[in-house]
Each structure stands twice: as structure tokens, then as C-alpha cells.
């Protein structure tokens, strides 16, 4: 990705073990970690501390600034709101908290939900910050995701900047004519922008396709770089999910 685009600066350049791991190892590791986290039995609380410590260790080894992780955790906000509503709507025995009558099971469920959701969000943030987008795509391909789907993702990612810049120019054009979306009556203006954006995207897609045909595109993208993982790298990548699986398994045994 080209540099200098604020919120699209996902990858954080560092030279660490985590950054150097092959992308497909990291994808499998993160997925296994998240599945282990969501399999935690309901009654136990201590496994979450183990998960959080393991994840924090990975973030520390990757030398990611804490502020970056905290800033990107903003995407959580909508489901935090949902979790806060749970104790109010759930059934079961109720407890008094600061004068509110809240459901006990709802409170517990909300806490678990927040813990699991937050761990998932942080795991994704660490993955995106330590792996270049094109390497993630390569990793998906190595994990046998259908070629067509990988290509659609590749094209989407490659042209996202262009399309977002186009959206930005349309917004500047609207605002320089004094427009600001204030009420629902302004929806037609936004809809016209969306329509124009679609036509421009579609036509760009046609041009990209023709340009690629003229360069010998046959429906497959050539692999320019062979990536493979040896067992040592798989072993390093397995540390995080192994800790999580161990914690989940012992929680089930102890529960």
C-alpha cells in the first residue's frame, strides 16, 4: 500500500519474530486462538487473564505501541453498548447496582462478552499491524481459499485507496457548494453521489480488466514470490494458540 494515508496505515514496520513469521502460520494461529477463547466454559474467569497475558506478550514481542492498539480498539464501541444493555434485558435473579435492578446472569454474560470480544479485536489488530496486507492475501491463498475470492480481495484492496480518494473528492465538491447533510431531506444528494460513485467504480473495473487483458491476464494472477513455512516457524506460531488451548482445556477439566 502507498504511504501517507492516515487510517490506512495498518502495517507497522518492525523487525521482530512476529513480523517475520509466514502469513499463513499467523492466520491459523490467530483463528485457533480466537476459537479457543470463545470455547471457554462460562463459569471460569481466570482463563481470560491467561489469554490477555499471552496476547499482551505477543504485542510486546512485536514492539507495537500500546497507544496504537488502544486507538484501533474504537471499533468495539457498538458492541460495548450492546453488552451494557444485556444486564437490563436478561432474565433470572436480579441484583441492585447503584440503584438499578440488573439481571445477575445478564451481568455475567455481559462481562464474558466484553472479554471475548475485546480479545478477538486485539488479536485482529496485532495480526494486521504485523502482517502486510498483500502478505495476508498470500497467506489466504496458501490456506487454499478459492483463487477467485483471493483475486477479488486483491483488486478490492488495490483500488480501495483510489475509490476512497474519489469519495473524498466528491465530498469536497459537495461541501464547497455549501452542502452539509443535516436531515433526511438531504438523502437524495448522498444517493446521487453513491450512484455516481458506482458508475465510476464499474467503469474503472472495465478499464482495469481491459488493461490487464492487454498485459496477458488469463484469469489467474501469477505468483511472484514463493512463500513456505518450515516446522520451526509453525512451532513459533503455535505458541499463542497452544497457551490458549491449554487454558481452555484445563478450565473445562477443572469446571
Amino acid at each position: 500500500m502507498s504511504g501517507g494515508h492516515g487510517h490506512h496505515e495498518l502495517y507497522v514496520e518492525r523487525a521482530t519474530v512476529v513480523h517475520r513469521l509466514p502469513p499463513h502460520c499467523k492466520l491459523v494461529a490467530v483463528l485457533a486462538f480466537v476459537v479457543a477463547v470463545i470455547s471457554t466454559p462460562r463459569s471460569e474467569v481466570w482463563p481470560y487473564l491467561v489469554y490477555a497475558a499471552a496476547l499482551a506478550a505477543v504485542a510486546a514481542v512485536s514492539r507495537l505501541p500500546a497507544t496504537l492498539i488502544l486507538r484501533r480498539m474504537v471499533v468495539e464501541v457498538p458492541f460495548v453498548v450492546f453488552a451494557l444493555l444485556l444486564p437490563v434485558v436478561a432474565r433470572g435473579p436480579r441484583v441492585e447496582v447503584f440503584g438499578f435492578s440488573l439481571s445477575e446472569s445478564g451481568l455475567q454474560a455481559a462481562g464474558i462478552l466484553l472479554a471475548k470480544g475485546t480479545l478477538g479485536v486485539v488479536a485482529s489488530i496485532v495480526l494486521a499491524a504485523t502482517t502486510r496486507p498483500r502478505d495476508v492475501l498470500l497467506g489466504l491463498q496458501l490456506l487454499r481459499m478459492p483463487q477467485a475470492l483471493v483475486q477479488i480481495m486483491t483488486f478490492m484492496f488495490r483500488y480501495l485507496e483510489v475509490v476512497l480518494a474519489e469519495t473524498g473528492r466528491m465530498r469536497v465538491a459537495r461541501e464547497s457548494r455549501g452542502f452539509r447533510a443535516r436531515h433526511l431531506g438531504h438523502l437524495p444528494v448522498l444517493a446521487h453521489s453513491a450512484g455516481a460513485l458506482f458508475i465510476r467504480c464499474y467503469e474503472r473495473g472495465e478499464r482495469v480488466h481491459l488493461a490487464m487483458l492487454s498485459r496477458g491476464y488469463t484469469g489467474r494472477l501469477p505468483v511472484l514470490r514463493e512463500v513456505s513455512a518450515h516446522s520451526g516457524q509453525w512451532a513459533v506460531a503455535a505458541i499463542l494458540p497452544a497457551v490458549a488451548v491449554l487454558a481452555t482445556a484445563s478450565a473445562w477439566v477443572l469446571a
Partner: peptide
């Protein structure tokens, strides 16, 4: 691939058009 990719980028961008 190219067309669906561009349309996916369009969907992504359109999801950023907030309306009150």
C-alpha cells in the same frame, strides 16, 4: 475478479457515507 473487486471497494466506500 477486477469488476467484483471494484464493486467491493464501492460497497466499502458507500458504507462510509453516513446519513443523519
Amino acid at each position: 475478479a477486477p469488476l467484483a473487486g471494484l464493486v467491493a471497494a464501492f460497497v466499502f466506500a458507500v458504507q462510509m457515507l453516513n446519513f443523519p
